[in-house]
């Protein structure tokens, strides 16, 4: 039995291979054309094959030459940042800039773990106010400010 210690190289290879597989799978629906008159599928297929080959190479190297383990990841900051961004996307149009940003900043501030509730409250209100000043009054971007009634 081969003992595979999956590390950075191995998982990078897997990632490349996945993207290549998805790319090639979708590109099979596009016409290839000829090299003289390339169809929309030609370049994507070439890239997909190259990427897949690189992925395999990485996996092979990881198995034969050893691999460096993936450093432990702290999921919390990333997760809360993404939740904050999604919250912005969900609320900006119905609730407007002010409320949406207060929510987004509060969630994002939790990602850092260090801020207390009072600091988060002040920070989110201050950033929301500042943003209205910059983006609405100074740059005149078309953003809803308050909930549409």
């Amino acid at each position: 039995m081969l003992k595979i210690k999956a590390g950075k190289d191995f998982w990078s290879g897997v990632m490349f291979l996945c993207f290549a597989a998805v790319g090639l799978y979708i590109a099979r629906g596009y016409s290839m054309g000829t090299s003289g008159e390339m169809g929309p599928g030609y370049f994507p297929v070439v890239l997909g094959v190259v990427l897949g080959a690189l992925g395999l190479l990485l996996i092979a190297r990881a198995i034969t030459a050893g691999d460096e383990p993936v450093a432990s990841a702290t999921i919390r900051p990333l997760l809360l940042l993404v939740v904050g961004v999604v919250a912005f996307g969900e609320t900006i149009e119905p609730l407007g800039l002010v409320l949406s940003l207060i929510l987004t900043v509060a969630i994002a501030a939790l990602a850092g773990r260090e801020s207390g509730p009072l600091e988060i409250a002040i920070l989110s209100v201050a950033l929301a106010a500042l943003s209205v000043g910059i983006f609405h009054f100074a740059l005149r971007l078309p953003l809803p400010i308050w909930p549409a009634l």
Partner: peptide
């Protein structure tokens, strides 16, 4: 940094949303 990064998040959200006024870009 804990006071700094939330403002980067704000810029990212508003910037991405307003470039095409398209919520899809935010996702």
């Amino acid at each position: 940094y804990r006071l700094l990064y939330p403002s980067i998040v704000v810029f990212c959200c508003i910037g991405t949303y307003t470039v095409n006024s398209n919520l899809f870009d935010v996702y």
